[in-house]
């Protein structure tokens, strides 16, 4: 076991040495891998931020529950109790008088309101459910509509559905992009390792003649692929972090102009770790494909 670990450690050291022996080409390879990984990861990060933005937007999850105009005080009280049980602290009551006053306050509406023989507006509840999932909101709307005394429940579902469809499409595009760039990353690693294998042909031949197994010969190349992929993943995470830091102030200012507060978040530690790990895995895969050449030599 100790000898096995020592051989792996020695292979890792040899792989690192091979990378540092040609620093410029190693740096370029890592940069190419980093950029290839950063693009789909940036797309994912954008969608994640948009999702957060959508969830933060009150309009995205706001529903209006309108009572029948002739609903009694008791009916309204029943609805209040039910709402408190269903959506505790996620609703507020707007009386028909308050709604009329709000309407009256709007420019040009005062005369129209004054000309009305009576208040035509119903009592209403404004709901802001914590769970903004479109399917959940649709179910909630159907449930609330069936309550006694409720005339209509309005949900800006079209907007939410459009937003959700956009996010779904974006996610699909990001996944496709990730697959394309993953193939590209494997190709880059394959080519880099292939060149290393060709460059080390003499050493491979000598090692074979003095009793090296295929595994012994392949090991440093595989570690080389893993190191390049992992460093590429780290580069991608750093590029995303730098991009987020650069974009955060103007995005926040833009959000403030629309009366909101929003600061885009960069890659989390786990996200960065996933980038490094997937880079290492793809690098290993590219190296594995490339070292098949050794067997064919």
């Amino acid at each position: 076991m100790k000898a096995w670990l020592q051989q792996h450690l020695a292979a890792l050291v040899r792989a690192a040495r091979r990378l540092t022996d040609s620093p410029l080409s190693t740096l370029l390879s890592i940069l190419v891998i980093g950029i290839a990984m950063a693009l789909p990861a940036a797309g994912y990060l954008c969608l994640d931020n948009l999702k957060t933005l959508g969830a933060n937007s009150s309009r995205a999850q706001q529903m209006s529950l309108f009572m029948n105009t002739g609903a009694s005080e008791k009916t309204r009280s029943d609805v209040e109790k039910r709402l408190e049980a269903t959506l505790p602290d996620q609703w507020r009551f707007v009386s028909r008088d308050a709604a009329l006053r709000q309407m009256e306050a709007n420019e040009g509406m005062a005369e129209i309101v004054a000309s009305l023989p009576r208040n035509p507006l119903p009592d209403a509840f404004i709901l802001e459910p914590d769970n903004a999932d479109p399917e959940h909101l649709e179910t909630l709307r159907a449930t609330l509509s069936a309550w006694p005394g409720v005339a209509h429940v309005q949900l800006d579902s079209a907007w939410i559905k459009r937003f959700d469809a956009f996010l779904r499409l974006g996610r699909l595009a990001v996944h496709l992009l990730a697959v394309i760039f993953a193939v590209g990353l494997i190709a880059v690693t394959f080519n880099t390792i292939r060149l290393q294998v060709l460059g080390q042909a003499e050493e491979i031949e000598v090692a074979r003649l003095i009793g090296a197994t295929d595994a012994f010969i392949r090991r440093p190349f595989c570690y080389s692929g893993v190191l390049q992929g992992a460093l590429g993943g780290l580069t991608a995470a750093l590029l995303l972090l730098a991009g987020t830091l650069a974009l955060a102030p103007p995005v926040s200012r833009l959000a403030a102009l629309y009366g909101g507060t929003f600061a885009p978040h960069g890659p989390s530690f786990l996200h960065s770790l996933a980038l490094v790990a997937s880079g290492a895995a793809l690098g290993w895969l590219g190296a594995q494909l490339s070292v098949r050449l050794i067997r064919d030599q």
Binding site: A3, W4, Q6, A10, E203, A207, I210, G211, T213
Partner: peptide, 19 residues
């Protein structure tokens, strides 16, 4: 691309002898 000693060390690395 390696020293005389490293050339002689290669067969021993292959059999996994302690450094």
């Amino acid at each position: 691309d390696r020293s005389a000693l490293e050339n002689v060390l290669l067969p021993l690395e292959i059999i996994g002898l302690a450094p």
